[in-house]
Design a protein around this nucleic acid. Structure first.
Lengths: 201, 201
DNA sequence: TTGACAAGAATGAATATTCATTCTATTTTC
DNA sequence: GAAAATAGAATGAATATTCATTCTTGTCAA
């Protein structure tokens, strides 16, 4: 099973094999271009097992989705636990995302480069999911927003998460030559400047 | 003898009917969830015609893609013809995109809310397509970039196009309550501020 | 003006294929 | 040895594509 943090243990359990295989295939070809049979082949398990564990293809995609959102949520927990100022928390979250783009591109791709609605119609839109609403809140806190309207909050959020998402996608598509962490400082400088945030480092 | 006016002649040409139907269906359900038969039904033409005109489902999607990229290209032509300063050109392009999001949401959605690689594997990545490389160039011109590195240009581009894309997607998903044009001024202010661009209006 | 004829556009039933799912047999685990 | 897990061949529903036929339109001879 793909973990953001932990290493998978030695005798890989069958459901982890399935999820790992599915993740790789989904990311490479897109959900609809991947058949159960391909997953079965790649994971080196039987079709029966896939049905027993996940009750079919959509079940696999859904389990993956929830698993990864969970890990993202834990990542945010960690950042919050170890960082004080909201603005610093945002910086750290972005940094972590950029790093994971290098070390776990499939996971990041499944989050940031996939249109889940097209195969998980019953899941809430991703940016309504827990980790992203939390990020939105931290952004709100990090910017002096006494008199900020709903609309302005949305713009701030779009500036930060929009540019981060765009960079991640460029990198995943091979259009960004260097690891994103190298862009981090410049990006943050421009972001905070645009948003009028003063950081007393 | 008085006679009823003939049915309005000039019936919509068949390939337009097909493209319009396909666009609506693709945007609503996603390419892979739309069958040729649904297109046939929605367009009120025969399956044979779809094959005659576009040689199948993928052909329809491809024709749509090229058609829409073309229109976007023309939009940029217009803006360039009527606006001097690059920064103003960018502003106008963003404004047009925001307006089109209200008046032609399907078209904008097909551009900004679709993963084309998953069904048009032979088309270049969208942000490598003509209109977007042109936008990238205008952005480059609009920002004093004598000493700007490749990386910095990419960050600038991500800030602008990333936030614009994000806002458009929010609006298309119904998560932005008001038309985006109302956000335009604030967005531009923050963008230029972040990018260090002075506008002598 | 009329009717015969040709060219090509449109039709949609029939076909071929793909692929998710089911089901029974087999193996493993405790 | 019972229960749980795994296997993968068989099934059939969904769906892309083909193609023989019908319809439309334009041309030209009588």
């Amino acid at each position: 099973m793909p973990y953001l943090k932990r290493q998978a243990s030695c005798p890989e359990p069958i459901d982890c094999k399935i999820l790992t295989a599915a993740l790789n295939l989904f990311v490479k070809s897109g959900y609809h271009n991947v058949s159960i049979h391909k997953i079965q082949e790649e994971a080196d398990v039987s079709i029966g097992s896939i049905y027993r564990h996940f009750n079919g293809k959509e079940g696999v995609a859904q389990a993956l989705y929830k698993h990864i959102l969970n890990e993202l949520d834990e990542l945010i927990d960690d950042v919050i636990a170890n960082t004080q100022a909201p603005a610093k928390q945002i910086e750290e979250i972005i940094k972590q995302l950029f790093e994971h783009t290098e070390t776990h591109p499939e996971i990041i791709s499944y989050i940031f480069h996939t249109k889940h609605v097209e195969f998980l119609p019953n899941e809430p839109l991703m940016f309504d999911a827990e980790p992203f609403t939390r990020i939105k809140n931290i952004i709100k806190l990090s910017i002096d927003s006494n008199k900020a309207s709903e609309m302005e909050l949305q713009i701030n959020n779009s500036l930060i998460m929009g540019s981060v998402t765009k960079l991640i996608q460029l990198r995943l598509d091979g259009l960004a030559k260097k690891p994103l962490v190298e862009s981090l400082d410049i990006l943050l400088e421009k972001l905070w400047q645009g948003l009028g945030v003063d950081l007393e480092t």
